[in-house]
């Protein structure tokens, strides 16, 4: 690990003042950041410890939604009575991720900012445009079983690893931040992440020193919720494909559908064309197949991840069957 300076923030305002520097990182749970610092994939000159800031509450807000403090650990969020009762997809997604120990430490804000688990991002001897911009991408011709089939560019095929963020994408969460200039921003999660394009090192729209303070969920959506995750072992593994689904039925027809996908792209993936194709139609395997074909119309495999295309098709169909049974 490279040497760094350490400062402990006693307020969010102090944290963003301390953090207003490109080589400074906030640390909360640290489960991903320290892992990467040990490998010298991350080499911040300074860490600002935000772990003791009072951002630990889950509270109901006016209009029926919920506000989640950025430091709420993943375990507590999954177990919260309101989340369990009204946002089952979020509880389920959290419980499908990592291990008990990691969920106890990992924070809500940090989970949103997890880095990819692409092997070539982790391996400092490999070329990686995300780690060293302009160096190239060894993943495309390499072992890319776990990597993306949607939203890739010639510069990067990494996936976003979070389960939690996939559920939040389906739920239309809003990310609330505090900037180093004191400005508060409310960023819909659909606008938060960026496609890799030719700058895969830039993963989201946060500015230097900007701190995630909360995540807000709108009132619980109508219908049934589920999170289906397919992975290489039964527990404690990242998704090959996952689906966060919320579907409501009225008079035998699908009246609303919110579907987000993990393991497929550089960000929690959502495609309104897929949802629109379902709405107003009676559930059937033929319809679900049509929706899957739409989702995968631009899908591109890179060899060892080609299997994700038919796997995604089957996983979406199975999820929709479950939600409409």
């Amino acid at each position: 690990m490279k040497l760094f300076d350490y400062a402990k923030a006693d307020s969010a305002e102090a944290a963003v003042r301390e953090g207003a520097d490109r080589d400074t990182k906030f640390i909360a749970g640290g489960t991903n950041l320290l892992d990467l610092m040990k490998l010298q994939v991350e080499t911040p000159a300074r860490l600002v410890d935000i772990s003791r800031l009072p951002l630990n509450d889950i509270e109901e807000i006016e209009g029926g939604g919920v506000r989640i403090g950025a430091l709420v650990p993943n375990s507590d969020l999954a177990a919260d009575p309101i989340i369990r009762e009204r946002y089952e997809v979020l509880s389920r997604a959290l419980l499908a991720g990592a291990s008990g120990q990691l969920r106890n430490k990992a924070s809500t804000g940090g989970n949103l900012l997890q880095r990819t688990r692409c092997y070539y991002f982790y391996e400092t001897a490999a070329r990686c445009n995300k780690r060293v911009p302009g160096s190239g991408c060894d993943a495309q011709e390499g072992f890319n079983r776990i990597l993306a089939i949607l939203g890739t560019s010639e510069h990067c095929i990494a996936t976003h690893p979070s389960d939690m963020a996939v559920a939040m994408r389906a739920l239309d969460a809003t990310i609330v931040t505090l900037g180093s200039d004191g400005e508060r921003r409310r960023i819909p999660i659909g606008d938060f992440y960026r496609l890799p394009g030719d700058t895969p090192d830039v993963e989201n729209v946060l500015r230097v020193g900007e701190l995630i303070t909360h995540v807000e969920l709108p009132p619980a959506p109508a219908g049934r919720q589920t999170y289906r995750k397919v992975r290489d072992r039964a527990s404690y593994a990242f998704a090959l494909v996952s689906v966060a689904g919320i579907v409501a039925i009225e008079d035998g027809k699908i009246s609303s559908a919110q579907l987000a996908f993990g393991g497929l792209g550089p960000m929690p993936w959502r495609d309104s064309a897929v949802e629109n194709a379902l709405i107003g139609r009676a559930p059937s395997d033929a319809l679900f197949g049509e929706a899957a074909d739409l989702l995968l119309r631009d899908a591109k495999g890179f060899g060892s991840n080609d299997f994700k295309i038919p796997l995604t098709r089957r996983t979406l169909i199975a999820t929709l069957r479950e939600l409409t049974a």
């Binding site: 350490y6 640390i27 640290g30 320290l34 120990q101 106890n104 430490k105």
Partner: peptide
């Protein structure tokens, strides 16, 4: 490396002592 911090199990390898 699992230990209990304030009664909760965590991986002690992935956290800084100073914290």
């Amino acid at each position: 490396c699992t230990v209990l911090v304030n009664g909760r199990r965590i991986n002690s390898c992935l956290t800084l002592a100073v914290m």
